[in-house]
Simulated assay, not measured.
Amino acid sequence: MSFFEDIGRNNAQLSHLRKALAQLPHSIPLGNSKYNFEHYAPDPERVELYGSTEAALNNVLEVTFAPRGRKDESAPCPFEFQDVP
């Protein structure tokens, strides 16, 4: 590859990174933070598309935590659900 092709590729990668970073929240919880889904409401269009609230939530979690899918079923789950009493 030529020097200019490398620069063009790097500029495209930096642009993609800039867009991805711009979508992050202003603060990120540290440590073993637990996320509260108490007031979560799925997108009604996704509920209609996937047929249930659970399926819509599952889709949001998959897109968020595994955008490329899991390679195989032996891959560790990146998070754990806990019931709130």
Rank of each mutant, 00 (worst) to 15 (best):
Phe37His: 11
Ser27Thr: 10
Pro29Tyr: 15
Gly69Trp: 14
His26Glu: 14
Tyr40Cys: 08
Ala20Asn: 04
Pro78Lys: 01
Asp6Arg: 12
Glu80Trp: 15
Asn11Val: 13
Asp72Met: 07
Ser52Phe: 06
Arg46Leu: 15
Gly69Lys: 08
Val63Trp: 11
Ala56Lys: 03
Phe79Leu: 15
Pro76Tyr: 08
Phe81Arg: 03
Ser33Arg: 07
Ala56Tyr: 02
Leu21Ile: 09
Gln23Thr: 14
Ile28Asn: 02
Ser27Asp: 14
Ser33Lys: 14
Arg46Ser: 05
Ser52Thr: 03
Ser33Ile: 10
Pro67Phe: 07
Ala56Ile: 04
Phe37Met: 13
Leu21Asp: 07
Thr64Phe: 13
Val84Trp: 09
Tyr50Phe: 13
Ser15Trp: 01
Pro42Asn: 13
Val63Ala: 05
Ala75Val: 14
Ile7His: 04
Pro85Tyr: 03
Ala22Thr: 06
Lys71Asp: 08
Arg18Val: 00
Ile28Val: 12
Pro42Ser: 12
Ser74Trp: 02
Gln82Tyr: 15
Arg68Tyr: 09
His39Asp: 09
Arg46Ile: 04
Gly69Glu: 15
Tyr35His: 09
Phe65Trp: 15
Leu57His: 03
Glu38Ile: 09
Ser2Glu: 02
Ala20Glu: 15
Asp83Lys: 06
Ile28Asp: 03
Ser15Phe: 02
Ala20Pro: 06
Phe3Met: 09
Arg18Ser: 07
Thr64Lys: 10
Tyr50Cys: 01
His26Cys: 08
Arg68Gly: 14
Arg18Lys: 02
Pro25Asp: 05
Pro67Ser: 11
Val84Leu: 08
Gly31Glu: 04
Leu21Phe: 04
Leu49Asn: 05
Arg70Cys: 03
Thr64Arg: 06
Glu5Arg: 03
Arg9Lys: 11
Ala56Pro: 05
Tyr40Ser: 08
Gly51Asp: 10
Pro78Ile: 08
Asn36Ser: 15
Val47Pro: 00
Ala12Glu: 11
Ala55Glu: 10
Gly51Leu: 08
Leu30Val: 08
Asn36Ala: 09
Ala41Ser: 05
Tyr35Asn: 04
Asn32Lys: 10
Asn11Ser: 12
Leu21His: 05
Gln13Thr: 02
Leu21Tyr: 02
Lys19Val: 05
Tyr50His: 07
Pro44Arg: 10
Asp72Arg: 03
Leu21Pro: 04
Ala75Ser: 12
Leu14Glu: 09
Asn58Met: 09
Pro67Val: 11
Tyr35Asp: 09
Asn11Trp: 15
Phe3Thr: 10
Ala22Ser: 14
Asn11Arg: 13
Ala75Glu: 13
Leu49Ile: 02
Leu21Trp: 01
Phe37Ala: 15
Glu45Ser: 07
Phe3Cys: 05
Ser2Arg: 10
Tyr35Ser: 07
Tyr40Glu: 06
Pro85Trp: 01
Glu54Gly: 02
Val60Arg: 00
Phe4Trp: 12
Ala56Thr: 01
Ser15Tyr: 02
Lys71Val: 13
Ala55Leu: 04
Ser2Ile: 10
Thr64Ala: 09
Asp72Val: 00
Asn11Glu: 13
Glu45Ala: 14
Met1Pro: 03
Ala56Leu: 03
Phe4Ser: 10
